[in-house]
């Protein structure tokens, strides 16, 4: 060892060069294998067999047995709502941002933001209380709910329950609308699923106070909530009913039913009053 070290030290002038060995045979084999693999990637992946998953776009609702949609017009705030609640909806309060800044001027919701107009007052108030207590988890809504007094939460629920707004929701997840309709109305016996409307009311218009209206909720919101029910991140229903239902839905089923329900005409408190 020492001898070698000594030789190494003294060999200052050694100049690097390459010996004239050929390429080892396994190397050729590897190269040939990689070449075949590369060619097969190009040949096999020439065109996608299936179109894109999502862009089965806004026209989803046309298959539905739909009522004529409410004409898009001026948003219709609640007629007899508490002015203080309307002020919070329009302008916020303290650390709470204006409700309308996400949920829309008439509570119509947005892409992944839930619609509030026409939901049951008790349901909205309960959710606000749950956000404040941490039994429903959402960072932003927690800030909002904590900035509101229990009375304000109640009056906001009442204000939104009295609102009517045109729908902004539409099928957007590429779900199979026929399958969605089946799941919503009849359910799937094989999976032990009752139809959504069994509890959530005819056409998903809701049954007071525990079963919120689903019709016209944005598809992305429904999809996300079903995921939260599945994972248990959302767990604020009276028992674990929604968790069990959501767990029984496959990815495709979840998107199908979300897309179908998004396309339904939303609840309209004024129509009921008439």
């Amino acid at each position: 060892m020492n001898g070698q070290n000594g030789q190494h030290r003294s060999d200052e002038h050694f100049e690097p060069y390459e010996e004239e060995r050929g390429i080892p045979a396994p190397f050729y084999l590897g190269a040939f294998g990689l070449l075949l693999w590369g060619v097969s990637v190009f040949i096999m992946d020439r065109e996608p067999v299936m179109p894109l998953a999502s862009p089965n776009p806004t026209t989803g609702g046309q298959h539905l047995p739909s009522q004529p949609p409410r004409a898009l017009g001026q948003p219709m705030p609640a007629l007899a709502a508490d002015p203080a609640a309307l002020a919070i909806i329009a302008g916020g309060k303290g650390a709470a941002w204006a409700c309308s800044s996400c949920h829309g001027l008439a509570g119509e919701g947005a892409d992944a933001v839930p619609r509030l107009a026409g939901l049951s007052a008790a349901y909205i108030t309960k959710q606000l209380n749950d956000f404040a207590a941490g039994t429903r988890v959402n960072d932003s809504m927690r800030v909002v709910a904590l900035a509101l007094s229990p009375e304000e939460r109640t009056s906001l629920g009442a204000a939104y329950a009295a609102m009517a707004a045109p729908t902004v929701a539409h099928a957007m997840l590429g779900g199979d609308l026929k399958r969605g309709a089946q799941l919503a109305t009849a359910g799937d016996d094989a999976k032990g699923l009752a139809g959504c409307f069994t509890c959530h009311g005819d056409q998903g218009l809701g049954v007071d106070p525990d079963f919120p209206a689903l019709a016209g909720q944005p598809a992305a919101y429904l999809d996300q909530q079903l995921l939260f029910w599945t994972s248990g991140l959302r767990h604020n229903s009276p028992d674990t009913m929604m968790n069990d239902i959501a767990k029984a839905l496959s990815d495709a089923d979840r998107r199908a039913v979300s897309d179908y329900i998004a396309g339904l005409p939303p609840p309209d408190p004024h129509a009921i009053a008439e």
Binding site: G92, W97, A98, S101, C102, A110, A112, V113, S140
Partner: peptide, 24 residues
């Protein structure tokens, strides 16, 4: 898609000023 997901100007301003005021 943030403009559709979180359209609130107020939320965005709070979040830019101090994200942990919303999400610890």
């Amino acid at each position: 898609n943030i403009g559709a997901r979180l359209p609130s100007q107020g939320w965005q301003l709070t979040h830019l000023y101090q994200p942990r005021a919303i999400a610890p």
